[in-house]
């Protein structure tokens, strides 16, 4: 205050008045700021996932659980190609920002090291990727684990964004287990730009097997 007084004594009366007004405004703003700012150390109220009122102060707040998609079942049992059986699997959904793979799938009796990165076969009107049943964002069920029944298809699907052929999982039943950490062996989607080996399937030249429409037969 002595410093302010010494400065004001050196200024003209008009300048002193302006300085005083400026100081008053500053002090007022600081006081308002203290009223509005939350008390240091007090946590912000947690917003619940479904918009319900937050827990009262002092109550133990449980970690927010992500919404889970409802279980799904195919309208009819699958009939896989000869030599392939419908089996139980565990699936770990892992969002791939570059490609269209769904996640890692392993047989129920196998370890994650044997898991395959797969595409999830969807059927409009039947079983669809669980994220479609949430908020329609692909990331909605990232790191959710599922109990699956189905089979690995004998064909692959081509992902044009990564130029890769991926294994296909055909689901018969999908049942969410809950959130889970990514398997240590597969912390995320596999690295891309790895081309599959050349197809060696023989081509039957003798039987074109193309059906002409009846109108032209």
């Amino acid at each position: 205050m002595d410093a302010i007084a010494s400065i004001s004594s050196k200024l003209s009366p008009a300048a002193s008045l302006a300085c005083c007004l400026f100081l008053l405004v500053c002090v007022h703003i600081c006081a308002r700021g203290e009223e509005l700012a939350p008390q240091e150390g007090a946590p912000l109220p947690a917003a619940s996932a479904n918009g319900a009122p937050a827990a009262a102060a002092g109550e133990a707040v449980a970690p927010v659980q992500p919404a889970l998609a409802p279980p799904q079942e195919a309208p009819e049992p699958l009939t896989p190609p000869p030599g392939i059986q419908v089996e139980e699997f565990i699936g770990h959904r892992s969002v791939d920002k570059d490609g269209s793979g769904w996640g890692w799938v392993r047989r129920a009796n196998e370890s994650w090291s044997a898991a395959k990165w797969v595409v999830f076969e969807e059927t409009p009107g039947g079983i669809v990727a669980p994220w479609r049943l949430l908020n329609r964002k692909r990331t909605a069920d990232n790191d959710i684990e599922y109990r699956l029944r189905g089979y690995l298809a004998p064909f692959s699907a081509y992902d044009p964004h990564t130029d890769e052929f991926l294994a296909v999982f055909v689901p018969e039943r999908v049942e969410p287990i809950g959130p889970a950490a990514a398997p240590p062996e597969h912390p995320g989607a596999p690295p891309h730009r790895v081309r599959v080996r050349d197809s060696t399937s023989p081509v039957n030249v003798e039987d074109p097997n193309i059906q002409a429409p009846s109108a032209l037969r």
Partner: peptide, 16 residues
């Protein structure tokens, strides 16, 4: 058949 993907395609490596 698959979102953003293709099942039946002719890849350049299949031209052989």
């Amino acid at each position: 058949g698959f979102d953003n993907m293709s099942k039946e395609c002719l890849h350049e490596k299949d031209l052989r």
